[in-house]
C-alpha cells in the first residue's frame, strides 16, 4: 500500500472538479457550506475581505478552529499556509487537513522560496497568475492550481485576466514547433519538461480551479466557460446577505455553467452580493495580493 503518491494527491483534485470550494471561518459556516453542496471547505481565521480590512500579518488558522471545522463536516477540509512557511504546512499535515493552500492571501514568510511540496504526503494547491507561475508551482510539487484573481474584492476582473492568461498561454504552446519550446520555457521561467508536456496535451498536468473575486452565480459560470474546472469562493458567500442561498446558487451555476436558463434561475432573489472593490483603488495603495509569490 502506497500513500502520498502524486496520483493520489492530484486525484483528490480530480474528485473536486465541477465543484465549489468555500472559505469558512467557523464550524457553523462549514456546515452551511456542506449543506449547500460545497465539494470542500477552506478553514480560515478570517475571509480575505476581513484580512484586507484588518491589515497586519495574516497567518495559518488556529488548530482548534481547524479541528472544529473538521469535526463538523464530512467533505474535505483545506487550510492555508503562508508562502514558504513549511512549518505551518507541517502543522497542517499533522492536523490531517485534506489539502494545503500555499496562499498569497496570507502574508508571505519567504521572499524567495516556496514550500518544497514533494516533501509532504498531503497535497498542495497553489495560486498562479500565468502559466509560468503555475508550472513553477507544479515543479515544486503542487497537485492542483487555482488562478489567483484578487481575493477579498468581490470583483471578478482579475480572475478573468488570470484564467485567460493561463489558458491562452497553453493554446500558444500548442502552436509552437518542438524547436521553439525551449525558448518558450525560458520565457515562461518554467521547466522544459513541463512546457513540453503542456504543449502536447493542451492542458495543465493537474486540475485548474479559479479563485479571487467570484461573488455571483454568473461569475462562477463565467469562470467555468473560460476554462476553469471548478471554483473557489472566498468572501463572496459569507459576506453576502443570504449565504446559504447564495452558496446553493453558486454550486448550481458551477454545475450548469453552460445552460443560461439554469444560471438565470439560480441568480434569482439572492439578496445583496458582497460589496465589491474597484481594483484601481488597491493598485494605488500597493495592496494587490496577487503579486505575492515568485
Amino acid at each position: 500500500m502506497e500513500t502520498g503518491t502524486f496520483r493520489v494527491k492530484a486525484g483528490l483534485a480530480e474528485m473536486l472538479k465541477g465543484g465549489v470550494i468555500m472559505d469558512v471561518v467557523t464550524a457553523e459556516q462549514a456546515k452551511i457550506a456542506e449543506d449547500a453542496g460545497a465539494a470542500a471547505v477552506m478553514a480560515l481565521e478570517r475571509v480575505p475581505a476581513d484580512i484586507r480590512a484588518a491589515g497586519g500579518v495574516a497567518r495559518m488558522a488556529d488548530p482548534t478552529k481547524i479541528a472544529d471545522i473538521q469535526g463538523s463536516v464530512t467533505i474535505p477540509v483545506m487550510a492555508k499556509a503562508r508562502i514558504g512557511h513549511f512549518v505551518e504546512a507541517q502543522v497542517l499535515e499533522a492536523l490531517e487537513v485534506d489539502y494545503i493552500d500555499e496562499s498569497e492571501v496570507l502574508t508571505p514568510a519567504d521572499e524567495a522560496h516556496h514550500i518544497d511540496k514533494w516533501a509532504f504526503k498531503v497535497p498542495f494547491v497553489c495560486g498562479a497568475t500565468n502559466l509560468g507561475e503555475a508550472l513553477r508551482r507544479i515543479a515544486e510539487g503542487a497537485a492542483m492550481i487555482r488562478s489567483k484573481g484578487e481575493a477579498g474584492t468581490g470583483n471578478v476582473v482579475e480572475a478573468v485576466r488570470h484564467i485567460r492568461l493561463i489558458t491562452g498561454e497553453i493554446r500558444r504552446l500548442g502552436s509552437l514547433s518542438p524547436m521553439e519550446l525551449p525558448t518558450a520555457a525560458k520565457e515562461l521561467q518554467a521547466p522544459p519538461e513541463l512546457v513540453r508536456d503542456v504543449a502536447e496535451s493542451g492542458r495543465l498536468p493537474v486540475v485548474l480551479f479559479c479563485a479571487g473575486g467570484i461573488a455571483t452565480p454568473a461569475d462562477a459560470a463565467l469562470m467555468m466557460q473560460l476554462g476553469a474546472e471548478g471554483n473557489f469562493v472566498g468572501s463572496g458567500i459569507f459576506k453576502s446577505s443570504d449565504p446559504a442561498r447564495r452558496a446553493r446558487a453558486i454550486v448550481e451555476a458551477t454545475t450548469h455553467y453552460d445552460d443560461p436558463e439554469r444560471v438565470a434561475a439560480a441568480s434569482r432573489e439572492l439578496g445583496e452580493a458582497m460589496p465589491g472593490i474597484e481594483i484601481g483603488t488597491l493598485q494605488a495603495d500597493g495592496g494587490l495580493l496577487q503579486n505575492r509569490g515568485w
Binding site: E2, G11, T74, P76, E93, V97, Y99
Partner: peptide, 14 residues
C-alpha cells in the same frame, strides 16, 4: 461507509 479509510493523508494505491 463513507471516508472509511480516513482523511486524504491515508489515501493510497495498491
Amino acid at each position: 461507509r463513507r471516508n472509511a479509510f480516513g482523511r486524504q493523508l491515508h489515501s493510497f494505491e495498491t
